[in-house]
């Protein structure tokens, strides 16, 4: 079944929640005017606030229901039934998280899932563990368009994240990212971090036979540039599109989720993984139930 997605390569008005919510709503309304009308609009990580907030997360974090309510109020009825995935700093009773909301807009909709970033980037320019809590896990959900998993930025750098999403049945993985541009070596024509993203996302798609959508933030924050360069990959790892650098864009991509099953049949890496996963877990270091390896016996 074809699924039309709009990747919203987006630049927030940093620290101005109302203005950014307005811009998000305008982006959604522009997306649903497109032909074909998208089933799903995918924003980047921290689209609501910008990424580098430091202690400002305390002022900018909001609850997931509050975010959905604010978007519904702004888009009115024109986007009813459309799904959104959007990155934001989330507040709940226990703490603040770097999260991605997956929801259906309109009165018949609601929140389907909130993924909280598991792997918090805390090195070099990144300080996430100082300011937000880590999410507990990675899972897929049955969205109206199919079984979907969400990852946030560094989640995608760990191959286990794509593995867990695929094992939970995802045929499409949405990666919401805010990746500060770095590296300007000649060759690719894009910042080095985007070369890395291209390799990572393509590998996740091809290994698990899933579609991968990477939605990237745009804009400069204190000298650190988010370059855009969003992309989508088919279940064989081929890039379907690449977004422009440095500017906002609404990027339509049509995927046929049945193609994920076909790719898995052609190259049954996923079924090999499913068969071996439990045995690998039991025998993995730290499992506490490690069985003796043949050479130990």
């Amino acid at each position: 079944m074809p699924l039309d997605i709009a990747i919203a390569q987006f630049r927030p008005s940093k620290g101005d929640l109302d203005a950014t919510l307005d811009a998000c709503a305008e982006t959604i309304l522009r997306a649903v005017e497109q032909e074909p009308r998208p089933h799903l609009v995918v924003f980047p990580e921290t689209a609501l606030t910008g990424y580098f907030l430091e202690g400002g997360v305390r002022e900018q974090a909001i609850a997931a229901p509050e975010l959905l309510k604010a978007l519904n109020e702004r888009v009115g009825g024109d986007a009813d039934g459309v799904d959104i995935a959007i990155g934001f700093y989330e507040r709940d009773a226990r703490g603040i998280y770097n999260s991605a909301l997956y929801a259906t807009l309109g009165p018949g909709g609601g929140i389907l899932h909130v993924h909280r970033k598991v792997f918090l980037a805390t090195y070099g320019v990144f300080q996430e563990e100082r300011f937000v809590e880590a999410g507990a896990g990675i899972r897929a959900i049955d969205g109206p368009p199919g079984r979907i998993a969400l990852l946030i930025c560094e989640d995608g750098f760990h191959s286990v994240s794509g593995t867990l999403a695929a094992l939970d049945g995802a045929s499409i993985i949405l990666i919401l990212s805010a990746s500060p541009a770095r590296g300007a070596a000649p060759g690719a024509g894009v910042p080095g971090n985007l070369v890395r993203w291209d390799a990572l996302a393509s590998a996740i798609a091809a290994e698990h036979g899933v579609f991968v959508v990477v939605s990237q933030l745009v804009g400069f924050e204190g000298g650190k540039g988010f370059a855009g360069g969003s992309a989508a990959y088919d279940p064989r790892g081929h890039r379907l599109l690449a977004g422009p650098l440095w500017e906002e864009a609404l990027l339509p991509v049509r995927v046929d989720l049945d193609d994920a099953a076909r790719a898995r049949t052609e190259e049954p890496l996923f079924s090999d993984l499913e068969r071996s996963w439990t045995r690998l877990l039991v025998n993995s270091p730290g499992s506490g139930v490690r069985r003796p390896a043949p050479e130990d016996e």
Binding site: A181, A184, A185, P186, G187, A188, G189, V190, P191, F220, G223, G225, A227, L245, W246
Partner: peptide
Amino acid sequence: DIDTDLVRTWLVQF
């Protein structure tokens, strides 16, 4: 070595 076209655009945007 740098990609001067890339850096030029990068800094203009900055």
